[in-house]
Amino acid sequence: DNSSADSDAANQSEPIRLTYANFPPAFTVPCVQMERWKTEVEKRSNGQVLVETFPGGTLLKAKNMLRGVVEGQADIGCVGMSYLPGVFPACSAVELPLGFESSRSSSRTLWALFDKYRPEELQDVKVLTMFATPPSNIMSREPIRGLADLQGKEMRGSGSSSRFLDAMGAVSVSMPMPEVPDALQKNMVQGIFTSLEVLQDMKFAEFCPSATIVDGPVYLFAVVMNKDRWDALPPATQQMLDELAPDQADWTGQYWDAHTAEAMEWARAEHGLQVFALSEEDRATASAQAADMFTDWTQAASKAGLPAEDILQDVRAWKQQFEQ
């Protein structure tokens, strides 16, 4: 019951208990970072804050994570911002095909954007940390050495990665994740377009022995907390969580990059993964063909009353800064 939990917060001898909901399966990176955050919070608070985690969408699913936290179904939730198109006009700038090379740089950029602009889209909740995936890359049944090989190929994608697939000349197909292995095996789709750790985490290397590095769009996540629950926390705890926020974003980025490298190594050893990269020329073509993604974003952001040009300029600068 909430009221008794609130009085717990006042009384320091009783630990504060927080529930933390997450939507993907327990072994995925968003859940690994959740467990790390839990460990870190319990350590830094000397056991005064206890976190109970609920992976796999058992408490809240991707589509109702944000509202669920606002309404108090969970104290904390990991929001997949890319699963809620239209809801985050400012942060979605980081989703544009800017060519991020790592999760560390995309995560730090997202956090920097949030920290500077404090956009209205997240005002109903307290943001505890943010992070983003490594770039989407192509994993395919047959080698794709350049854009020419990709033309007309059916690829599983979602959200802004779908639009980028179409821009590169592929045909994006949306399908629920559980159907992907079967669809790959039967050649209903010829590949998938997402970050590469799924080669090992979801065993996609079994069907996709070939990867092509294109540095496509990233997916964004925000870990958010119910405002009332946040306000009820003792100031020392609030300060501790605030200090943890950028550190957690950085940790997650680094972990995700290292984990992706491991997954590729595993796929090489176990399934003979071959890795290709788009030529500079192909990259330029893809960028040019994806230009309307930027126009559309600018339009939507301006309509939401945001300084779209400034945000975009900042995001590009941060990307460059964090990738050095």
Partner: peptide
């Protein structure tokens, strides 16, 4: 095919095949 085995496979990261 089986939805339960698919969900299980995705949860534990085992090959669905």
């Amino acid at each position: 095919p089986s939805v339960v085995l698919i969900i299980y496979g995705l949860q534990v990261g085992e090959s669905i095949g």
